[in-house]
Amino acid sequence: MEVEEKISQLIKQFSALEDWTDRYALLIDMGKSLPLLPDAEKSEKLLIKGCQSRVWIKAELQDGKVFFKADSDAVITKGMAALLLHVFSGQSPQTILDTPVDFLDQIGLKEHLSPTRSNGLNDMIKQIKLYALAFNLQK
């Protein structure tokens, strides 16, 4: 699926839910259904520092596409990681770098994007973009 399609699908899915409870329930579901990262893979190197919850993001390049794995000990944080992975995993490094993250506003998660917010959504985005940049430079 193209990245734009994935984004509009997500926006549709979230904006159909008027109540915050339902939006968070969906986010929590996404978090719960994200495959676990095996404990052995949760290395210090993959840990995103500065979040109140711990988040690990792993990236691999296969056939020119970046595949991410992520985990967190907090399920809402994990849901946010799942959301980002849904959009970015399987895309080319260039697409990842070129895709803006303003879709998060439209799904009602804007409040989590404040740079001082300690949930690490910003840090996750930064990490995903950094992986893409690194893979791009390897080429």
């Binding site: 968070y24 109140q52 907090a74 399920v75 949930n119």
Partner: peptide, 21 residues
């Protein structure tokens, strides 16, 4: 079974300011 951060986020949605961490 729940992370304190998740609890804090949900409480915030309900207008309740607590501290977590």
């Amino acid at each position: 079974g729940a992370h304190h951060y998740d609890v804090g986020v949900i409480l915030d949605q309900m207008g309740i300011a607590v501290r977590t961490g």
